[in-house]
């Protein structure tokens, strides 16, 4: 979704006229990659499952929050295709709802990372010199900090379980790679003819950077963004494992899976349902990301 909109923005950018045909090439190449297409379809299907599924399930009287202590955990059945958890809640709908949150977290956090990372990297590269040096050393320092430790500490400091903070935090730690990639790309584009041309007609640096250079670096950025989606999902899952994920009774795949992992010896379905769907999603995003890179990344274009 994010890729579609950014690609659209690129197509509208006047300076991107010269690269329009590479975009079409990329799309053609992507379509030829059967695995990437299949995985993209799976991903869309899972999105549909998560965002529309609960509505459909509602018609059958299933919801994610009704607690039935007397029932407890039951194995999958026709009434509850994914079974129920320890408190007797339906796992099918919980998996769907969990997916909504997991997908939302992944996209929001990636969007945040994208904005920070691209801006940071582009400015560093374009300004060059001492500014570049300082900005990149900051990135280095943050890179050295184990991200998860950072998140745990910050979450403890702010002591908030607001999901917005969770988005922002994960986004706030995933932008480093984006910044490095953008910088590299912008460095190589900085002295290209169309940039010189824009400079010659007196365009301001901000305009040159974000209207001319960044759209041309989009390929790399899209690839980096797609690659960060799965890792964001895993980060969220890890935080849930530590009990720092979304609050009960809300649940994400991360919380469901981490709960399920403690019950594997007793109620396997509590792990299997969200685990398989989550694993499939992450795998789909990974393949999609690889496909996009093959299609967009200029380095592999010669193949």
């Amino acid at each position: 979704m994010a890729t579609a909109t950014t690609a659209g923005a690129a197509a509208r950018a006047p300076a991107a006229v010269s690269v329009r045909s590479p975009w079409r090439d990329a799309w053609r190449r992507l379509r030829k990659n059967r695995m990437a297409v299949a995985m993209g379809a799976i991903f869309l299907a899972i999105c549909g499952f998560c965002f529309l599924g609960p509505i459909v399930a509602g018609w059958f009287g299933l919801d994610a929050t009704t607690i039935r202590i007397d029932r407890g955990a039951t194995a999958p059945s026709w009434a509850h295709p994914f079974g129920t958890d320890l408190l007797g809640r339906d796992m099918l709908v919980r998996t769907m709802i969990g997916g909504r949150i997991a997908i939302l977290v992944a996209f929001t956090a990636t969007a945040i990372a994208l904005v920070i990372g691209v801006t940071w990297g582009a400015i560093a590269a374009y300004a060059g010199g001492r500014v570049d040096y300082v900005m990149m050393r900051v990135v280095d320092a943050l890179y050295g900090f184990p991200t998860v430790v950072f998140v745990i500490v910050v979450m403890a400091v702010f002591d908030t379980k607001s999901i917005v903070v969770l988005f922002a935090l994960i986004g706030g730690i995933s932008w480093l790679n984006m910044a490095r990639q953008t910088r590299g790309q912008v460095l190589s584009l900085r002295h290209r003819e169309f940039v010189e041309a824009a400079r010659a007609v007196g365009a301001r640096p901000g305009r040159i950077l974000f209207r001319h250079i960044v759209p041309n670096a989009l390929g790399v950025i899209i690839v980096a963004a797609t690659a960060s989606l799965p890792s964001v999902m895993l980060t969220e899952a890890f935080l849930s494992f530590l009990g720092l994920g979304v609050q009960a009774p809300m649940a994400s795949w991360g919380t469901l899976v981490s709960e399920g992992s403690t019950q594997i010896s007793v109620y396997v379905w509590v792990l299997v349902a969200p685990g398989v769907v989550m694993g499939l999603t992450i795998m789909a995003l990974n393949f999609l990301g690889d496909g996009l890179r093959d299609a967009l990344d200029p380095q592999t274009r010669k193949d």
Partner: peptide
Amino acid sequence: RNSWVDYALMVVALLGISVPSFVLGPIFIR
């Protein structure tokens, strides 16, 4: 490349980064 072998191998390879280790671990233990 781009054969079913390629895809199957990559699915296996990606298993480790698609499933959190706290899920894979208990499954392996079990």
